[in-house]
Each structure stands twice: as structure tokens, then as C-alpha cells.
């Protein structure tokens, strides 16, 4: 038996929605945020409507039940029910969106705010446009020395950072669960792999209090490490972060 076009379209949309829920919430235990799921479903609905109205026959088949519902005198009862249900549904959706709740309002937090053009630390000013890790050059020039520097960076990390960012640099340190949001996972391709070393220097040196206005709300417990580490120690720990994770800093070496 061939299903009516409109029912096919509804089943596709519902099927995709259930698929998203099953795969991400149940299967992977990483639910899709509601704001993103709304966007996904909006375009799934739009695309379904486009496909089902792309040909004249399909469009007629698609609209036939709706036309019948509105025009066919024999469907008076179901028409009245639909005409009551649809506004009620809209009212319920509006109410549930506007009703006061204890949930904090959703805020867009900029996780990678833009760095300043210059940074003041250690009694001097660093030009962020030109700032580079002074030890990076040893990777090619003196690999043995580079290894020693990375190891020293590792020592700094395990003495200071791993409590929050974790043994494996995955953001799962002993104290990590005490923070919301969790400390950054450096293994993620979306974190340090996207950034230049100067950016990391800025973030480590100035910590949470050094976040600019655009990064509000300042949900960061990161200490101001320039008060505890030397300039060289910060550069060495940056070497270690990239070396351990196998990521490379954003660079324009190929240019």
C-alpha cells in the first residue's frame, strides 16, 4: 500500500528527529543541544517540503489532503478539531517558551575570544602580531635540545596544570568535575590545534581574569600564571602541550 505523500513527509521528519535523539542521546551519550537541534529540524522540514513539491504531480498529491480538509464538507468534524488543535498547540509552545523558570537564561559564550593586539606581562609589552615561541626554532635546528625543552615543559605541566587539565591533557583532571564548564580538552581538534602559540601564551599568562569583555560570562577558573611561572616556563609548557597531543600550532609556515 502506497502511503499518502503528506504522511510520507511527516514520517520522514519524525524519523529524522527520532534518529537524532537515538543516535546522539541514547547511543553516544552526547545529546544535540536544543538550539542546534531546532536549526537542524527546521531545515529538514524545509528540504522535505521542497522535495515533495518539486514536481507538479507530487505537489498536487502533497496538498490534496490539506485542500480536502479545508474544502470538503464531509470533513467538517475533523476540520473543526484541527482548527482548534493547531492554535492550541501554538499557544502551548508560546507559553512554554515564555513561562518563567529557574533555568538560567541561555548565553552565548565566546570560548576563543580574540586576543589583544599587545600584552603586558613580566614588565614588558608583547606585540601579539609578531609574538612567537622562542623555543620552536629548536625543533629543526637542534632536536635534542628541543626534546629537553619539551620535557621541562612537561615537568611544569605535571606540577601545575594536570590537576585540572588531566594526565592525558583531555580536560579530565582530578579537580575537573568541580568546574562548570570543564577545563579545556587539549586533545580536541577544536582547541589548541586551531590557535597560534602566542594565543596560548596570552591565555596562560593572564588566565580567567585576563579574558576580554567579549568572552563574558567569565566562566573560567584559570589562574593568572604569569604570577607563578616564568616567561620561559610558559613557552616550554606550550611546547609540551603540542608535543604530547600530536597537534601543531596554527602557523603560516607554508605561506
Amino acid at each position: 500500500m502506497k502511503l499518502p505523500k503528506l504522511l510520507q513527509a511527516v514520517l520522514v521528519v519524525v524519523g529524522v528527529y527520532i534518529g537524532f535523539k537515538l543516535v546522539f542521546s541514547v547511543g553516544l551519550h552526547q545529546p544535540i543541544p536544543s538550539s542546534l537541534l531546532t536549526m537542524y529540524m527546521f531545515f529538514v522540514v524545509v528540504a522535505t517540503l521542497l522535495v515533495t513539491t518539486a514536481t507538479e504531480e507530487s505537489a498536487k498529491e502533497m496538498s490534496a489532503p490539506i485542500k480536502a480538509l479545508v474544502e470538503d464538507p464531509s470533513k467538517k468534524t475533523i476540520r473543526n478539531i484541527v482548527f482548534v488543535l493547531v492554535p492550541l498547540l501554538a499557544a502551548w509552545m508560546t507559553y512554554s517558551k515564555l513561562a518563567p523558570s529557574f533555568e538560567a537564561p541561555v548565553e552565548l559564550r565566546t570560548i576563543h575570544p580574540a586576543p589583544p593586539s599587545s600584552l603586558k606581562a613580566y614588565g614588558k609589552s608583547f606585540d601579539m602580531m609578531k609574538l612567537e615561541n622562542p623555543f620552536s626554532k629548536f625543533q629543526k635546528e637542534d632536536p635534542e635540545k628541543f626534546k629537553v625543552l619539551v620535557k621541562e615543559g612537561g615537568d611544569v605541566y605535571y606540577k601545575n596544570c594536570h590537576f585540572c587539565h588531566g594526565d592525558k591533557l583531555d580536560g579530565q583532571g582530578q579537580y575537573a568535575q568541580g568546574f562548570n564548564p570543564l577545563p579545556l580538552n587539549f586533545q580536541d581538534v577544536g582547541t589548541i590545534a586551531q590557535l597560534q602559540e602566542s594565543y596560548l601564551f596570552w591565555r596562560i599568562a593572564t588566565g580567567g581574569p585576563g579574558l576580554p569583555k567579549e568572552a563574558t560570562p567569565w566562566l573560567s577558573a584559570m589562574p593568572v600564571w604569569k604570577d607563578f611561572l616564568t616567561e620561559d616556563e610558559i613557552w616550554k609548557v606550550i611546547l609540551f602541550l603540542y608535543d604530547y597531543t600530536g597537534q601543531a600550532p596554527r602557523s603560516w609556515a607554508a605561506h
Partner: peptide
């Protein structure tokens, strides 16, 4: 950068989605 409620932030364990983040 996802728009997350506090509950979603906790459920994901951080500001990034493990599978959709990439």
C-alpha cells in the same frame, strides 16, 4: 561555539560537543 543551557553544558561535560564539535 554552541549555545547551551546549563543542563546541556553539564550533560556534554564542557562547551564542546565530542562528535559535532569537529
Amino acid at each position: 561555539t554552541l549555545v547551551l543551557t546549563n543542563q546541556e553544558l553539564k550533560a556534554l561535560g564542557g562547551p564542546y560537543h565530542k562528535y559535532l564539535g569537529p
